[in-house]
Design a protein around this nucleic acid. Structure first.
Lengths: 89, 89, 89, 89
DNA sequence: GCGCATTGATGGCTGC
DNA sequence: GCAGCCATCAATGCGC
């Protein structure tokens, strides 16, 4: 599959395994952390459910609040766009 | 790849080519229509640009308006959820 | 929403709101149509699935057929170019 | 925000807003952390890409390593089950 | 077990 | 013309 031709002293097709390994392991570490947090979130939902709250409604509330935040950010963005557009004119 | 064993008079592995073909062609037709509309949209953007409008800003405006609509729909949805939750209680 | 009568040289920041609105609404309309068709496509897949067809395989078939078509068009285009180059338009 | 003192039998529709709010905010906080980590992961991929590594291949490698880990854990679990079944807990 | 929700992969579009 | 961005689409995992 490789057709290794030495074109410089260290061979051009060389893959820096150590460097790659470092990236891979950083990512795997981060993935673990992410999963841990996802599990935490599940736990909180479970706890809320155990306290009689409706998880489906909660998800919706959170989703709506997020939409509000996103919208707000977008509005700021478009203000910048308008200003830039006026500056261009 | 198939291991065709006759298990009834018409052979169980039989694929109804005509039926399948009909579905495939319906989808391909719809895909064409979809692409035609996507092309129309591009044309409108191009035309607007030709009239001196800032396409980037336009996209943002459209995006924001869509967020408004989506948010509105979500709010109606959560209202239903609330009502349902109260009905459950 | 704006009805800008004055389009003079120093109203540099002026935007023709009516014109812009028309473009925006044309695009939004087209986006709706596009979505409607996308939904139709989903429905057809669902219907095919309900008739026992394998959706994943169907997608593959459609993709392959599209590649064939594209390839064919590409080849015809090249042929035309050659013919044109030969003064044989 | 509500401070519901009355939690009597006929306030059937009552929702403990303060409690709910606490859950919601805990989840939102966790979601933020999760997103931050997801962003970190993207950055690492981008950095790796900038160092000439193939992101798609990296993803594949990480996926394969994860499958190995999962498989290993699964096997250990089964081994434990067998040992336990042998009264060798 | 199914549907839903999230997440990852791919292809198209935009801007440099 | 290509790289980065974004929207769409397939796949996996989760909860009901």
């Amino acid at each position: 599959m490789n057709k290794p031709e030495r074109v410089d002293s260290d061979s051009i097709e060389h893959v820096d395994g150590g460097h790659l390994r470092a990236f891979i392991e950083r990512i795997e570490r981060l993935e673990e952390e992410k999963k841990a947090i996802a599990d935490d979130i599940k736990e909180v939902y479970a706890e809320a459910k155990g306290n009689g709250f409706d998880v489906k409604v909660m998800r919706k509330v959170i989703s709506l609040r997020k939409m509000d935040r996103d919208k707000r950010i977008e509005e700021e963005t478009i203000l910048d766009l308008y200003l830039a557009a006026l500056g261009d004119a």
